[in-house]
Amino acid sequence: MRVLLDGLLRNRKALVGAIILVLVLLAAIAAPLLTQYDPSARVGRPHQPPSWNHLMGTTRIGQDVFARLLYGARTSLAVGFGAGLLITAVGTALGIIAGYRGGKTDEVISFLTNMVLVVPNLPLLLVLAAFIGQASPFVIALILGLTSWAWGARVTRAETLSLKQKDFVKAAEMIGEPQWRIMTFEIFPNLISIVGINFIGSVIFAIITEATLEFLGLGDPRAISWGTMLYNAQKASALSVGAWWEILIPCFALALLGLGMSLLNFAIDEVANPRLRTGNWRDRWILLARSGEGRL
């Protein structure tokens, strides 16, 4: 754990990713301080281009895009992290149990996991959301959490299988520690980098999928989120009438947040898997080789 944190602190990708995430987080928290407008109220004339009064212009029904963006960040982050947590919790628990218990338990969980993996995710979510009707962001987070754990479960199971053979687990078994204790206190802490990658990957997935579902018209159009901003803009044909700000601004916000999160994910991957790391030694190596101090 300490090695992981230490590695992350010195990783450039992690730094940039963290800065982006913190900026979005601050913008979301400080939304009422940064804008005077109510995000759902009609506060200007329709489709005003960006100006001093409306920094990012207005929507077709005259809402302030900047205000919607700030308040929408709250939804995107909440759904992303909420669903991400749920996905990771379910996936990790199932993976550890299947890997550690083995036998029939493993067979059942693995079968279920493989099944979920081959049923296409988005179409399944579309059907679920369609029957639920205009799904609130909270409901979207919930169904995402319950349908998207399979990848995490599979990866966690594979890693648990190899941990199970390690001496410290065998030792704990000899002492007669109960299974749940071994799973929580012996196995889980050693999976921390996989859980981290799974968590951040799930957050990215949840943010993207929430936006996609809402864009496709399955969300609650009154909710304030980046996905509904896209949905409303698309419905208002914002692009063909030239109101690019209404559609491109949430686009860039989503891209930026996605980028920040992926940078974090790649960084954890590099720290956890030393083979993928490209450390400072490379610069030193090149310097030495160039100056004729050595060769290969």
């Binding site: 030694w281 490379r282 101090e293 050595g294 060769r295 290969l296």
Partner: peptide, 12 residues
């Protein structure tokens, strides 16, 4: 056989 790759370095 000169199979080394960085970070190995054969001194001059």
């Amino acid at each position: 056989s000169r199979l080394h790759k960085p970070p190995a370095l054969i001194r001059r």
